[in-house]
Computed example of a mutant assay.
Amino acid sequence: MKADMLRVLIADDQDLFRGGFAMILNAHDDITVVGEAADGAEAIAKAVELEPDLVLMDIRMPGVDGVEATAEVCRRTTAKVLVLTMYDVDEYVYEALRAGASGFLLKDVRRDDLVRAVRQVAGGESLLAPSITRRLIADLVGRGRARPGLSRRLAELTEREVDTLRQLAKGRSNAEIAAELVVSEHTVKTHVSNVLTKLGLRDRAQAVVFAYESGLVVPGDA
């Protein structure tokens, strides 16, 4: 196995989905599926045992569901979690993002998009799918899920870091943020790192959730 091979664990209670995703991913020279799990409990155990770079996690499974499993995998390993769902607006997805997931995909994802997402998330980026993820979060925050008390933590950030967080919440890339704030991409990377560290966030996906829940960005912001 190549040293830089991306190691993936697939957790889904349906054999068909596990087998299909494994076949697609294993067809690529830089990706290998190191294991499969049929429920959340097995996903946690295998993530600890196999130390994958990424876990493809079905959000709705019997027993230990994908939300609880995501939280445990993120707490006990360094693996990234990419959750799978049948629905583009699913409260379970929102909870998984809060638990540490780096993004989500619909189960009917095209094979090229699946492979691209695995590489992107395993490489340290978040799969925000900006419009759909922000719509999900905005919808749930709009239904009373906001946590205004979080706004006090914004005081830990500099003005420029707050601006960066606001741009992150709008799904913008480092290059787009750099252009908007008229700074270098290197400076943006520094600001993003500072935001995540100061707020204790795992990655950009959690930054989006925080920005909405704290009220920094409100539903409808462009």
Results as ranks from 00 to 15, higher is better:
residue 60 R to Q: 13
residue 200 G to L: 14
residue 53 D to Q: 07
residue 38 A to L: 09
residue 49 E to N: 02
residue 34 V to L: 09
residue 102 S to F: 08
residue 6 L to P: 10
residue 93 V to Y: 04
residue 39 D to V: 13
residue 30 D to V: 04
residue 180 E to A: 15
residue 183 V to H: 06
residue 154 L to G: 07
residue 211 A to S: 00
residue 196 L to K: 14
residue 150 L to E: 00
residue 98 R to V: 12
residue 126 S to P: 14
residue 121 V to P: 09
residue 96 A to N: 05
residue 144 G to K: 12
residue 105 L to P: 07
residue 40 G to D: 08
residue 42 E to A: 15
residue 214 S to M: 01
residue 34 V to T: 11
residue 191 H to E: 10
residue 46 K to D: 02
residue 78 T to C: 03
residue 150 L to Q: 01
residue 176 E to Q: 15
residue 26 N to W: 08
residue 215 G to S: 04
residue 172 R to W: 07
residue 205 A to V: 02
residue 166 R to Y: 15
residue 47 A to V: 05
residue 37 A to D: 12
residue 183 V to M: 11
residue 44 I to V: 14
residue 110 R to K: 15
residue 216 L to A: 04
residue 214 S to A: 03
residue 60 R to C: 06
residue 58 D to W: 12
residue 180 E to N: 10
residue 139 D to E: 11
residue 196 L to D: 01
residue 211 A to Y: 02
residue 172 R to I: 07
residue 9 L to D: 05
residue 216 L to P: 00
residue 102 S to W: 09
residue 171 G to H: 07
residue 197 T to G: 10
residue 168 L to N: 00
residue 216 L to E: 00
residue 80 K to H: 15
residue 28 H to M: 08
residue 206 Q to T: 05
residue 130 P to C: 01
residue 180 E to M: 11
residue 110 R to W: 03
residue 207 A to I: 02
residue 157 L to R: 12
residue 137 I to K: 02
residue 28 H to A: 07
residue 16 L to V: 15
residue 211 A to K: 02
residue 150 L to R: 03
residue 192 V to Y: 01
residue 57 M to N: 01
residue 89 V to M: 13
residue 154 L to N: 11
residue 154 L to P: 10
residue 18 R to P: 06
residue 196 L to Y: 05
residue 63 G to K: 09
residue 50 L to P: 02
residue 168 L to C: 01
residue 44 I to W: 05
residue 145 R to E: 12
residue 104 F to V: 04
residue 216 L to K: 03
